[in-house]
Each structure stands twice: as C-alpha cells, then as structure tokens.
Nucleic acid binder design. Sequence first.
DNA 1: TTGTTATTTAGAAGTAGTTTAAATTAATAT
DNA 2: ATATTAATTTAAACTACTTCTAAATAACAA
Lengths: 230, 230
Amino acid sequence: MDIQVVIADSNHIVRCGLTAILSNFPDIRIVGEAVNEEKLKELVFNFSPRVVLIDFLAPGFSVDTVQELKRISENLRVVAITTEQSGVTIVNALKAGVDSYIKKDCDIHEIVDSVQETGKGSKFFCGQILEAIRRESIDPDEINGLEINCEPVSLSRRELEVIKLIAEGNTNNQIAEKLYLSAHTVNTHRKNIMQKLGVNNTASIVMYAVKSQLVSPNKFLFSPVNSAAG
Amino acid sequence: MDIQVVIADSNHIVRCGLTAILSNFPDIRIVGEAVNEEKLKELVFNFSPRVVLIDFLAPGFSVDTVQELKRISENLRVVAITTEQSGVTIVNALKAGVDSYIKKDCDIHEIVDSVQETGKGSKFFCGQILEAIRRESIDPDEINGLEINCEPVSLSRRELEVIKLIAEGNTNNQIAEKLYLSAHTVNTHRKNIMQKLGVNNTASIVMYAVKSQLVSPNKFLFSPVNSAAG
DNA sequence: TTGTTATTTAGAAGTAGTTTAAATTAATAT
DNA sequence: ATATTAATTTAAACTACTTCTAAATAACAA
C-alpha cells in the first residue's frame, strides 16, 4: 500500500527536489506540496496523508505547526527536515510531535528511508541528528512519551505585564517599583510564568515575549556608549 | 522660511492623516512620505529635509533607522511618533538620535508643535511622553549628550557561538560543556558580549540574538508538560 | 456557599548571572 | 623584533534569579 506524503517548505527548489527524489519510489505517493502553514493545514485536513515532510524552520512555518497538524489528523506522522540540528531545536521538535528528523544535507538514501520507515510507524533519524542526539543526551522516546498540555498557554493580565518588563531587561526589583509591588510578588509571577510556559530561565521568557509579539526587538538599540562621554 | 518635512509610517491612513494635519500650516511643507526604511533613506538623501516624522515601531522601520538617517543627513532632526511609551523604548529612541517624541493619540496641537519646535532646533515631548520620562527618571539631555559608538557591533566567532547558546536558554555551565571550556571562560565571553552590545543582562542578549537573526523564535515551543507523565 | 483562579506577600536555600581583576595566546602593525 | 591590540582563558566576590514552602485577599463561577 502506498505511503501518502505531503511536502512542506517555503522554498520552491526544495519542494521540487524532494518531490523528484521521492517520486522515484513506487511505495511513496506525493499528494501535495505546501508553501506555508495555512496551505499545509488545508492539505492535511482534506487529504489525510500518512506522512508530512516539513522544514518547520522555513519562513511561514514554525514548530507549533507540527503540534497543530497532529491535532488535525490523528494518524499523521511527521518527518522534520531542516538545515540545523541544535539540541534545543531537536528537543522542541520532538515535544511538538515530530516522529522522525533528518537534515537537508544528509544522504539521499536517508531522506527516502525516513519517509518509508516513518510511514510504517517507526522513528528515523539521519546520521547527523543521531550524533546530536547522543552529544546532547536526548532521549527521543522519553520526550515523545511526555503528554504535552494541548491547551494554549493562558497568562493573566498581570503576568503579561511582568513578561514584557522582563523582556525589556528589568530585574525583579525594577519591576516591583514600576508595578508598585513587592519583589516577592514579582518573583511569584515569574515562577508562575515559567511554569505556564514550561521553561525555567529568563532567556526563555524573553524568547516567548518576542515569539508572541508582546515586545518587538525593533525598539532595542545595541550600541555601546563611549565611556569617555560626560 | 519653510520647515521641510518627510513623513514615515507603513500605514497609508496614518500618512494621509499626518499630511492633512500638517499641511494646514504655512510654515510646514511636506516634501515626501515613506512606507519603509529604504524609501525613507532615499527621500532624506535626495531632499535633505529638516524634519523626519517617523513611527520607528511601524513594520518596515526600527530604532536603527533613526541612527542611519542621522548619518545620512547632518542637520536632520527627528520626531518620533508611536503608539507606545515604555521607558526602554524612549531611552533607545533618544540614544538613536530622536530629538522629539510624541504619541499617536496625543493632542493635534502637540503634533504640530512638535514639528515646528523641532524644526527650530528645540526638543519637544507630548504630555504622555513627559509623564513617562518623569516616571522613569529619564534625562533626555543626558542621553542625547552620550556619544554613541557608530561603528557596527563587531563580535568574534566565539562570542557569536556563546550568544546563540545563551539565547537557547543554556547556563554558563552548559555552554562550557558544549564548547569544551571552563565556565569562567564562558563568563568572560558573556561579559565582553554585554560590553560590546552596550547592555547588562541576559534578557538583552537574547533580544539581540533574535533581532540580528542569530536564532529564530520559531523553533521554541512553549507548552508545559503534564507532570503526571513518566 | 463553595470552589477556583488571580493576585499579593514572605523566608530561605541553592543556582546562575554580573562585576571586577588578571594572565595567556594570537594576530597585526611599526 | 617589538609594541599593540584583540581574543581567549582563568578566578573570586557579589547580585540576581530559581525553587520551595506557606499563606492571605479578591473576583468570579458553579
């Protein structure tokens, strides 16, 4: 029986290349190509493919796309194909529901194998990803086993205020002053925010603030002042 | 003598509105409108207006735009007009070379005054901005007096590596492991990075990483895992 | 009324980030 | 060859963040 595959990447050349490579194999059938998340969700909803081969880091997609696809189609399996392989990227992809992960510069056989194996229900990782997984001590089965809370993050008004101020570089004491609170309170908000976001450091809070457009990096200027001035 | 003004905002309605308001005054002459940074730089280069009235937070612009305009035209004076007024935003705008600052929902008289006063060489702040300046204890004259280092930030290869890992949420110890260094070394890199960027906390390093596209927020997933799992 | 969530405050222990100081290596210019 | 600078490395002291535990008030819904 054929493995029905949808290819998702913003780049036309990449989509053509992947389609050309995979079309050579009789057990693989490309049922569609998507340039962005919206089109991809339509395709998955309408055709219920077995496998989506996606570069979730390409413009127009994100790791959240994977999570949403899995909600749309119960039996869908996802192969991620990207140009980078940092530990965080892999971990987040697995959390979001990626089953298999390969790199764009991996061996062509690995691309084909990943789709075939994933279609059969196995996981597949190319050599470079396997190396990264070992180096970073990532356990894909453990992460896949985690139950992700599918409800969207629900932050209170106060928490959103605190997130913005954190992202703008304020300390707990500075936030406390601006919000007329005790530093203890701000600390509690910070703790609750991290819990709701599933993270455990300031860097991730800032990343969340930018990703969810609570702050724009465009308003930050990065130029050292000459200390001679004054 | 006329004050030659260029209006810069991505929004057509806003540009029309500002042009309509300012055109009523005989001492003000609108010499052009710009939808994005590129067009704005062209206009400033070709027409050397006295004043640019800009929403540097609108899509297609950023606080850096102001800095670049000041380099293009020596006598140019800049009036910022935005919808927000957080302390960091104002401070960064002033650092970048903004002379006057008003809000989009301020009094119409204040819009006109800001352009006229700025054209004459004064500074002007609308009521809401003045309130923010007082609340945050900002001294516009002091910030304007600072000599900004105009040379672009120059980070070493090692520093860029460290920035990426910081933005991904790694601690100094984790970075040390990944880069085969002592935590002390990573600490020094962090210090030098902050110095070069003109900042003093992790949040700002993350903001820089995103702004300069060293990392994409799209690869970060924010969903708490159900602690029941395992 | 009861139960839930948001908001507020507090103390303490442990971890991580920030500042300051200093030395070594590598690259470059004079 | 030597002086100068930038990059990289190590160290210690201090400040801020993170985790944990505990509790009180307010707003709101069942």
